[in-house]
Nucleic acid binder design. Structure first.
Length: 808
DNA sequence: ATCATAACGCTTTTT
DNA sequence: GCGTTATGAT
């Protein structure tokens, strides 16, 4: 083949491939087509990161390495090139395009990638699900074999197959953090240690960090013995015992999934080579949130072919507290010489002012790669800053803004309220309830945290793995079977002495001394478990579940107090639909498969998403989401940034990144609020407005409502100097400290008077009749029956802003 | 065993 | 200020 032919072929191939990705912008396209070698993709907020990932994978599947190489397939003929030229010239003609596409693509492909050769890792199940869905939509059924999953799922998949090479049983059980915590608590009592000096959460943090540093319990203990203080040596003791008991129960915890996988890859050449060969392309999402183990996992697996693509945003690294090292993304280019870096800085989400505010804030950080978000969609509205008197005033302000917007035709779910600490959610909830605003709090209690769910799952876990002492002890007397604490102690002692599991021990209770009459009860319980283990083999899982609830008496126990346990019974039922869903979805339909799935899938909120309402959540939970209108509340020194981070540069930079995340959630309108004083943890404090407010150029901010504390408060309150200096001054000085002043007379309100029977029109709810009016401390609670909407109870002062009297 | 009272403590969270 | 948890009394 001549040089000229080659050049022309390459040109045509580039054009034909690019045609598939023409909806992407230049940088996005570059990212999708740079398939070979290490690649760092710095994807700013709202820059279309997931779209790029999808297209990148599509490119791999369609064209293999062709988009990123000058290599030319052998046996190329003149007529092939002529064909490609013709195809490209007529690509706008749908019929010709369709007729020629298969052949054209075949000519342009170089080693197309098979789906299972792609490893695409995310952090959360939600992200993994979204990725899978969009891949299937784009690529069809083939996409199902792509390893698009979370770190932990990928590890489970590898370990289920090969963990025996580390001397573990392949049927291992997975402990969630609650299990880990109870195990540590149990160890603390057994070792006679006080859980105040050794808080289980902190201990688990230490253990987690040890594993992250690839330290086995023994190695950790050796180090602690050599240089550690008393506390550290005890911690090491706990770690040793913790690992021992996990091992005995045939269980691994969340960290072990990664720890053991990395260990397996490092020690077993066979396995390592197998996966290194398999994964031609490795992609890691949210790379700024990875820890050391995850870094090793990704690095080792990509070493076979050297194609590792990490996607992330160093400015959105907000999970240091759970072990993430921003250093992974900062050092990527250093660790991978020859790595290419592509920045996605065009933002498709927010208006100009919002982006500039975010840029201005994050600019104050030192440890960052540097990025500047931009948009071609205009400046948009300015941000607003409202200084509230207190938390209640702040919450009411937010509620009023939302009502106003809703009245103007907006929808509830366009709004999100973000805060630093969930302690701030209460007053918002009250304000929303008062004003009849539907809302949903994200986070908090999760489905699998309910005691009843854990109980039932403990039964299932024990049936699958009888060695699981922890779970067995959870259910041994739930429902009550007359097996009290004393009996349990004797059992544990006997088990420890004989080196057997509790399950084995209760099979022969006569061998346990001092049991007396309870031996019979144990026998009954043991027989029950034996029977259930048999039945679970030959019954469909959902039918077995019903049988389990019945045979154990668990449901009957709840139904003894139906009113009190209403919610619990509902949860138990809901778990059944989870099982049914699993049976529908999955191929293997085994108990083990189900337990695996839920061990790693601990929130069901994707199931109950739909509901429309204002979303209230922490800034952390808001990561990755977007809303037209975003309210960030509690922008005060001590709250955000939190008092623990003040004075610590690294912590402060993390807070600032969190602020950046929060600001960039907004598409249209960004409302910032701070309160001059606030009640928190039972104490009222006066906080300065957050430094982050000062880091935003003041031209981008509009002060709304009161820009100084109100004089209307009934009590003597904190009053500041005239010019609201706390919001504009760059250096807080003593002169801005609050001082006390007597309260000026109350401002006269000019509300129209309402009474029972009046008909009114409300901006949000339409026409209604006042059915009740109860005066309450200067305000009044009105009950209004709205046409079609139902009856709402509103505070008159707040509601009056949004309604007027109408004639009959 | 079940209930009452006191005491504590409290960023952020996924797997 | 509130919710959880530990301890003790009946």
């Amino acid at each position: 083949m001549t040089n000229a032919m080659q050049t022309e072929f390459l040109k045509l191939r580039r054009a034909i491939i690019a045609e598939q990705f023409k909806t992407l912008n230049k940088k996005q396209q570059e990212a999708a087509l740079a398939t070979e070698g290490p690649l760092l993709l710095l994807a700013g907020a709202g820059s279309g990161k997931t779209t790029v990932l999808i297209n990148r994978i599509a490119n791999l599947m369609l064209f293999g390495s062709a988009s990123d190489t000058e290599d030319v397939p052998g046996g190329l003929t003149d007529s092939d090139i002529a064909f490609l030229r013709l195809y490209l010239d007529n690509i706008t003609d749908p019929t010709l395009r369709e007729a020629g596409e298969a052949k054209a693509h075949a000519l342009c492909t170089m080693h197309p990638v098979r789906p299972w050769e792609i490893l695409a890792i995310t952090f959360t199940n939600k992200a993994a699900d979204e990725l899978k869905h969009r891949l299937e939509k784009r690529l069809g059924d083939e996409a199902r074999d792509i390893w698009a999953m979370t770190f932990h799922s990928a590890c489970v998949r590898i370990l289920r197959r090969y963990i025996d090479r580390l001397g573990y049983d392949n049927g291992f059980t997975i402990y969630d953090s609650a299990d880990s915590q109870s195990l540590v608590k149990r160890i603390l009592t057994d070792l006679d240690l006080d859980d105040k000096t050794y808080p289980p959460r902190r201990i688990l943090g230490e253990i987690s960090r040890a594993k992250d540093a690839l330290l086995e319990p023994e190695a950790y203990q050796a180090a602690a013995e050599k240089e550690g203080d008393h506390r550290r040596r005890k911690t090491a003791e706990i770690y040793v015992e913790y690992a021992k008991r996990l091992r005995a129960a045939g269980a691994v915890d969340f960290d072990d999934l990664l720890f053991l996988t990395v260990k397996l890859l490092q020690t077993d050449e066979d396995v390592c080579r197998h996966y290194q060969r398999q994964f031609r392309y490795v992609l890691i999402d949210e790379y700024q949130d990875t820890n050391n183990l995850q870094y090793l996992f990704a690095t080792i697996l990509s070493e076979g072919h050297g194609n590792i693509c990490v996607v992330g945003d160093d400015d959105q690294s907000i999970y240091k507290f759970r072990g993430a090292t921003i250093q992974n993304i900062l050092d990527f280019e250093h660790q991978h010489p020859g790595a290419r870096t592509i920045r996605l800085e065009q933002n498709y989400r927010s208006t100009g002012h919002i982006l500039e505010a975010a840029n201005a804030v994050i600019k104050n950080n030192q440890g960052r790669k540097g990025k500047h978000l931009w948009t071609d969609q205009g400046q948009g509205d300015k941000l607003t800053h409202y200084v509230a008197r207190n938390g209640e005033d702040e919450a009411n302000y937010v509620a009023q803004c939302i009502l106003t917007h809703f009245g103007a035709g907006g929808s509830w779910s366009d709004h999100a309220v973000l805060y630093r600490m969930s302690a701030l959610s209460n007053q918002l909830e009250f304000a929303f309830k008062r004003n009849g605003i539907p809302y949903k709090v994200v986070g908090g209690m999760r489905f699998f945290d309910y005691a009843e769910i854990k109980d039932v799952l403990a039964y299932l876990a024990v049936l699958e793995n009888p060695a699981d002492d922890l779970r067995l002890l959870r259910i041994i007397n739930t429902p009550a079977r007359g097996i009290g604490q004393a009996t349990v102690e004797r059992l544990r002692e006997a088990a420890l002495r004989s080196g057997r599991t509790i399950y084995d021990t209760i099979q022969h209770p006569d061998e346990v001394p001092d049991l007396g009459r309870t031996a019979a009860k144990l026998k009954t319980f043991a027989a029950l478990l034996r029977d259930l283990r048999e039945k679970v083999q030959d019954m469909p899982l959902d039918a077995f579940y019903d049988h389990l609830l019945d045979a154990t008496g668990y449901l009957a126990m709840l139904k003894e107090k139906p009113d009190e346990n209403l919610a619990r019974i509902e949860h138990i039922q809901e778990l059944k639909s989870t099982i049914a869903g699993y049976i529908d979805r999955s191929e293997e339909k085994t108990l083990k498969g189900f337990l695996d799935e839920i061990a790693l899938y601990s929130d069901l909120d994707s199931l109950e998403a739909a509901e429309a309402g204002v979303v209230i959540m922490t800034m952390h939970s808001a990561k990755g989401l977007e809303f037209d209108h975003v309210y960030i509340v509690g922008l005060e020194e001590g709250i955000f940034p939190g008092y623990r981070s003040i004075g610590d540069t690294e912590e402060m930079e993390e807070e600032r990144r969190l602020c950046y995340v929060a600001l960039t959630r907004a598409k249209q309108k960004l409302h910032l609020t701070s309160a001059a004083q606030r009640m928190l943890f039972g104490r009222t404090t006066a906080n300065m407005p957050s430094r982050f407010l000062e880091e935003i150029p003041q031209d981008y901010i509009e002060k709304t409502g009161q820009t100084r504390p109100s004089y209307r408060d009934t009590r003597a309150d904190i009053v500041f100097d005239d010019e609201a200096p706390w919001a504009t001054q760059s250096e807080p000085t003593k002169s801005t400290a609050p001082r006390y002043r007597p309260t000026p007379p109350r401002a006269q309100s000019t509300l129209p008077t309402y009474q029972k029977g009046d008909t009114i029109t409300h901006k949000a709810f339409g026409k209604g009749t006042i059915t009740a009016l109860t005066p309450m401390g200067g305000d009044a609670l009105v009950e209004i029956a709205f046409e079609g909407v139902g009856t709402k109870r509103l505070m008159l002062k707040a509601a009056a802003q949004h309604m007027e009297k109408s004639e009959r």
